[in-house]
Amino acid sequence: MPKLVKLYITQVLIGFAIAAGFVGMLLYFNVANLWHLVTHNDAGIIAVIVLWFANGIVFSGVQFAITIMRMADSEDEDQGGKRDDLPLVALEPVPVEVTAKRR
């Protein structure tokens, strides 16, 4: 299996584990009375699974993005956003004559 695929799968598993902890904390601290809603409804377990899955997608995407951005070499640090070698050009307005016919 390629290294990038292994890295992606690892980060997805970490993201879904973080999401499980996050959803567990939401239920434990009863944020927005979520524990009561989940335990007193027939579709409560489905709601928890959907909440975990949606947060897992977000957290795994963020986890993978952070990992990829941290892989930059130290020699790449001076390449972003600097344009010191280009001269700065000051724009000046130019008057334009416009003639209009009278009716």
Rank of each mutant, 00 (worst) to 15 (best):
I14Q: 03
L88G: 09
E92R: 13
V58K: 15
W52P: 01
A100F: 10
V96D: 03
V5W: 15
L86S: 11
T67P: 00
Q11P: 06
L27G: 02
K3L: 13
A54K: 12
I57F: 15
T99Y: 02
Q11I: 04
G81Q: 02
R102C: 10
K6H: 12
N41W: 05
I45A: 04
G44P: 00
G44M: 04
E92C: 10
H36K: 02
A100K: 09
N33T: 08
N30T: 07
S60I: 03
F22C: 09
V89C: 09
G44A: 06
I49P: 01
I68P: 03
S60L: 06
M71N: 05
G56S: 08
L86D: 10
K82Y: 02
G24V: 06
A72P: 01
V98Y: 02
A72F: 10
D85E: 12
V50T: 09
H36R: 02
E97P: 00
L34Q: 02
G44K: 01
G24Q: 02
I18W: 03
V48Q: 00
L34N: 03
D76S: 08
V31F: 13
L34S: 04
I57M: 12
V89A: 12
M1S: 04
V38E: 00
V23H: 01
H40P: 00
P2Y: 12
L88Y: 13
S74Q: 10
G80K: 01
L51V: 08
L34P: 00
Y28S: 06
P87R: 11
I9S: 11
A65K: 09
V12S: 07
V31C: 08
L91P: 07
V58G: 14
E97C: 01
G21E: 07
A72K: 08
D85I: 08
M71K: 15
F29C: 08
D73E: 09
A32R: 13
V5P: 00
T99V: 07
P95F: 15
T67E: 05
V50N: 06
P87E: 10
W52G: 00
K3N: 11
V31S: 05
M69T: 10
D85C: 05
L13P: 01
G81L: 04
I66G: 00
H40S: 05
N30E: 08
L13S: 11
T10D: 14
D84C: 04
V89W: 10
R70Q: 13
N33L: 06
I45S: 08
M71D: 08
A43M: 13
V12F: 13
F16M: 04
I18L: 15
